[in-house]
């Protein structure tokens, strides 16, 4: 009974944390954007604009939820939720740390919900599902820009998911396990996979950028040509759900990257910090890198996106598998 309660508690805690994460992340994104462009970012709501996310949230809550007249109303309504659920589901297998003991009742608690022996497959598969929300939202809006956004999303997803998962195979070959927990444990003590799989990491990073639709690969919401793309017709909370998805997806991609390539909660031993702090620091660093690239690079053209995916990343990931195979044997 206690076990079940514990699992429920963990699920609740992780969900709450993930739901509230977009608040600081939007603030961080706007601040990073501001400072890179030699501006200040939000300054007026609260000291240094710290309450800006709450103001945005209140604004979005009170806006009218518009459903276009000729939209497919049902699909239009569920699309944001469809895109939101998978990104939350990813965290079911994510190990945030090893074990810790609750001091008073002397109970050992694992810092993950489930240790699946196909964890890495599960994470990649489920993370890929959130594209359905984008596609359906784009199609159901019955607007040409949204439809184009949805089409781009589907083609982009297929092209980059392939390279992304192929680059993970290298890790699986090195570690000999599909379980995320094993992958992290095998990297303990500075044996981080980034040192063994640098090519794989580069492919994974680029593929990840495309997977979570960040600049330079955010063609699905391309303001320049599609005027917001798949969420062009959305407003109010449904729009907020899409934003929430984007930020949680960004976090999940950073988390996966840290787990696969940067040793999870493993930190340098001369600085005595708890593992979870190292983990969070690494994740925040990658989130920052995502923002940093967003405000540095322009957007790729669509044909460039496709040729990078199919002509460069996919062959490179196959080469990576080949090299890893040779070395492992």
């Amino acid at each position: 009974m206690l076990e079940v309660l514990l699992i429920i508690l963990k699920v609740v805690v992780i969900t709450m944390v993930m739901f509230s994460l977009p608040l600081p992340l939007t603030y961080m994104e706007r601040k990073v954007a501001g400072h890179i462009q030699v501006r200040l970012g939000p300054m007026r709501v609260g000291p240094h604009g710290i309450l800006q996310p709450f103001a945005d949230m209140i604004k979005l809550l009170f806006k009218e939820d518009v459903v276009p007249a000729k939209a497919d109303a049902w699909l239009f309504r569920i699309a944001p939720v469809v895109s939101m659920i998978p990104v939350f589901a990813v965290f079911a297998t994510v190990p945030f740390g090893d074990k810790f003991t609750i001091p008073f009742i002397n109970k050992e608690v694992t810092m993950y919900i489930a240790d699946m022996n196909v964890g890495i497959l599960y994470v990649l598969a489920v993370a890929g599902l959130s594209v359905y929300g984008t596609i359906l939202g784009g199609w159901a809006s019955n607007s040409k820009y949204a439809l184009l956004g949805g089409l781009r999303a589907s083609a982009q997803m297929i092209s980059y998911e392939l390279a992304l998962s192929f680059s993970c195979i290298g890790i699986v070959m090195v570690v000999n396990s599909l379980s995320l927990l094993d992958i992290v444990k095998s990297q303990a003590g500075w044996h981080w996979n980034i040192f063994y799989q640098p090519l794989g990491f580069i492919i994974f990073f680029i593929g990840g950028l495309a997977e979570i639709n960040r600049i330079p690969f955010d063609l699905i919401e391309d303001e320049g040509t599609l005027g917001a793309g798949y969420h062009a017709e959305y407003s109010s909370m449904r729009f907020a759900f899409f934003m929430l998805t984007e930020y949680v997806a960004m976090v999940s991609m950073s988390v996966i990257m840290v787990l696969l390539y940067f040793g999870g909660w493993d930190g340098p031993s001369f600085i005595p910090l708890p593992g979870i702090i190292w983990f969070i620091l690494k994740v925040v660093f990658f989130v920052y890198v995502f923002m940093w690239t967003r405000f540095t690079y322009p957007r790729y053209r669509y044909d460039q996106l496709m040729s990078i995916g199919w002509k460069i990343l996919l062959p490179l990931s196959l080469v990576n598998i080949l090299i890893t195979g040779l070395v492992v044997i």
Binding site: V32, I36, V38, W292
Partner: peptide, 23 residues
């Protein structure tokens, strides 16, 4: 790409030119 990132990183920590006018 790295040169691009190297340009934006110092800007992140440089002094802003914003005039915080009415406040």
């Amino acid at each position: 790409l790295i040169q691009g990132l190297a340009i934006t990183l110092p800007y992140t920590f440089s002094k802003t030119i914003t005039l915080r006018y009415p406040d």
